[in-house]
Design a protein around this nucleic acid. Structure first.
Lengths: 172, 172
DNA sequence: CGCATTCATTTAACATGTTAAGTATCTCCG
DNA sequence: CGGAGATACTTAACATGTTAAATGAATGCG
C-alpha cells in the first residue's frame, strides 16, 4: 500500500491530457512486467552465483531435455530471438557448456547440444532453482498458480492471430 | 496451434538428467514472458511508427498524468532501473519531448515533466494505443482480464517480502 | 565547522532485445 | 546445370536490462 508512490490518478492532474487513458500502472503490460520481475528477482541471485544469466539458463534447460536441436528450434523453445541466441551460443560454446556441429544433410543448419560440463552445471543449479520455485508455489498457492498459468496461456492464445496493420503489409 | 514447436516433453529424452525438472516451457517465468510478449507485439508497430520504444512510451504516459516528478520516483512509476531511465531521459530531452530542471531545495534532484511537444505526440499515439487495448480486452474478455490482473497483483504481493539468501547479506 | 556518511543521479561495462542487413547454403525451375 | 529465390544463421547497430562504480550534493554528528 504505502509502497506505491502518490497515486497519479488522484490529486491535481494538469491539463496535459484530453483523452482519459487508463492509469498506466494498471495496464496489462505493466502488470505482466511487474509480476514477472517479482518472480525473476527470486532466481537471479542464485543463477548469478553460477555465472549464468536468465537467458543462458533457459537455453541450458531447453537443451537438457533433448539430444540436439537446430538453432531455429532452440530459439522457439527458449523464446529468444535469433540474434540474441546467436550471441549467447557463441559465449556458451566458448565456456564449453554446449557443443555445436553442422548438420550433415544441410550445411546451413547447426545442431546444438549440451556438453558434459553443461550437464554438471545444471545439476549444481537445479536444486536451488527448484527450491525457489517451490517456495513461490507455496506462497502463491499451487492451485492459484495453475489457474494463473491457464489464464496466461489463454491470453497468449487469444492474441495469436491478432496482427496490427503493419504486420499485414509485411506478409507478402 | 501449429505454431508451437514439437513439444520437447514428448519423444526421446536422453539420459542427460537425473532430477526431473518441470518442463521449462511451462514454468511461470516463461508463461509470463510469453504472455507479455503476445501483448506487446500488438503495440510495438504503432509505437514504432511514432518513433517511440515501449519504455519511452511508458515514461511519457507516466509524465502525462503529473506535473513533475523526480527521476527516482519516475523510475518507480515507469518500472525502469535508474541507468535505463537516465539514458532514456537524455534522449527524450534531446528530442524535446520532456523538460528537466534541478530542484531548488535539493540540487541533487532533477524534476522531470512532459513538454508541449510530448503532449502532442501522446495525443497522436493514444487513440491507436487505446484501440489496440480495447481489441485485446474484447478478445480475452473484460472480466477475465480483470481477474488476470488481480492474480498478477496477488502474485507480486505474495513475493514482495521474499528475498534470497544473497539479498539478506547485502542488507547491512 | 569539518568530515564521514548517505542520497540522487549518472556513467561504465557487459548482456540481451529488436530490427535490418549480410553470408552461406540449399531448392527448384527453366 | 545454373541462377533466382528461399532458408538458416550470423553480424551490425541501436536501445534497454543489470550490476557496479563514480560524481556531486545534502546530512548528521562530533
Amino acid at each position: 500500500m504505502s509502497k506505491r508512490p502518490a497515486d497519479p490518478a488522484n490529486g491535481s492532474v494538469p491539463a496535459a491530457r484530453q483523452v482519459p487513458m487508463r492509469d498506466f500502472s494498471r495496464s496489462l503490460p505493466m502488470s505482466l512486467l511487474r509480476a514477472r520481475e517479482a518472480v525473476m528477482r527470486q532466481f537471479r541471485p542464485s543463477l548469478r552465483e553460477h555465472g549464468l544469466t536468465e537467458q543462458q539458463w533457459r537455453i541450458l534447460r531447453a537443451l537438457a531435455a533433448i539430444e540436439a536441436v537446430e538453432v531455429t528450434e532452440l530459439a522457439r523453445t527458449a523464446f529468444l530471438l535469433g540474434p540474441s541466441l546467436s550471441r549467447i551460443l557463441r559465449d556458451l560454446e566458448a565456456r564449453n557448456l554446449i557443443e555445436r556441429k553442422t548438420a550433415k544433410a544441410d550445411q546451413r543448419r547447426s545442431m546444438v547440444s549440451i556438453s558434459k560440463e553443461g550437464v554438471k552445471l545444471m545439476a549444481a543449479v537445479a536444486p536451488t532453482s527448484e527450491a525457489i520455485y517451490a517456495e513461490i508455489t507455496r506462497r502463491f498457492g499451487a492451485r492459484k498458480l495453475a489457474e494463473l498459468q491457464e489464464m496466461l496461456g489463454e491470453l497468449e492464445h487469444s492474441l495469436a492471430g491478432l496482427r496490427s496493420a503493419d504486420d499485414t503489409l509485411a506478409e507478402g
